[in-house]
């Protein structure tokens, strides 16, 4: 057997090995993907149930808490719930997070601005309203305006 034959067999073997390795890699990738999709499907499914549980319980909490709010404070209630619902800013921040300037990022930044208007505006106006409520015993001293 000449050295040339040996070399060519070797290179053939190497090529075959490469092929096998590729095959193994693609199989592994496929398996991983299959696992991942399965896992994701299961994950989203279980999140939906978890989310629904949280949602229903929170509705009940909201129901009982809000019925206890005195009617005199219904306006501050609306203002503060408005501020609080701007917690949607959490979603906006995640969209604005990535470095690339995509459409998604711009929408996220826009939502951050809108939600911040609400958060600051809502809490401040609630504060202003609540500061005005005084009891008779507080004297209700003359204030400007």
């Amino acid at each position: 057997m000449s050295v040339g034959d040996l070399a060519s067999t070797l290179s053939n073997l190497a090529a075959e090995q490469q092929k096998l390795a590729d095959l193994a890699k693609s199989l592994a990738a496929q398996a991983a993907q299959a696992m991942a999709t399965q896992g994701e499907a299961a994950g989203t499914h279980s999140f939906f149930i978890t989310g629904l549980t949280v949602f229903v319980l929170a509705c009940f909490v909201g129901y009982y808490v809000v019925w206890r709010v005195t009617p005199a404070l219904h306006s501050p209630l609306m203002a503060v719930t408005n501020a609080v619902s701007s917690v949607i800013i959490v979603g906006a921040l995640l969209a604005a997070g990535p470095i690339e300037m995509t459409a998604s990022k711009w929408m996220g930044l826009g939502a951050v601005v809108l939600a911040s208007i609400n958060i600051f505006g809502g809490f401040i106006v609630t504060q202003r309203m609540l500061a005005m409520y005084k009891k008779k015993s507080d004297g209700g001293g003359p204030k400007a305006k």
């Binding site: 989310g51 949280v54 949602f55 509705c59 909201g62 609306m78 619902s85 949607i88 959490v90 979603g91």
Partner: peptide, 29 residues
Amino acid sequence: WAAAATGFTLENPLLIITGALVGASGAIL
């Protein structure tokens, strides 16, 4: 409710809790 639906989409329990509170409050009013 819009905030709660966003919470479901983003799988974020805080948005769901808050959305439900606000939604219930508005409905009662």
